[in-house]
């Protein structure tokens, strides 16, 4: 098979400090010490909350029309 290009080495975004970290099996962020999974879960929860708030606002505005 012909030579491929250089395949990107994946990294993971730490939701605690917004730095990328290596997928080296560590569970905490090498930069800020955050628990990576917990920070991700918190981020997801915040996102869901923001979406809920936006939906509620949209509905309220629709009711005003």
């Amino acid at each position: 098979m012909a030579e491929t290009g250089r395949i990107p080495v994946p990294l993971r975004l730490c939701r605690g400090c917004r730095r990328f970290v290596n997928l080296d099996g560590r569970e905490d962020c090498v930069f800020c010490g955050a628990d990576l999974a917990a920070a991700e879960a918190e981020h997801e929860a915040n996102l869901a909350e923001m979406r809920r708030a936006a939906d509620a606002l949209r509905e309220a505005l629709a009711g005003l029309r």
């Binding site: 080495v9 990294l11 975004l13 400090c17 917004r18 730095r19 990328f20």
Partner: peptide, 18 residues
Amino acid sequence: PHESTIRNVLDPEIFFHG
């Protein structure tokens, strides 16, 4: 800390990969 902000194209997980 700004890699994701400056480089993302609709996706915060995009980063410089060489």
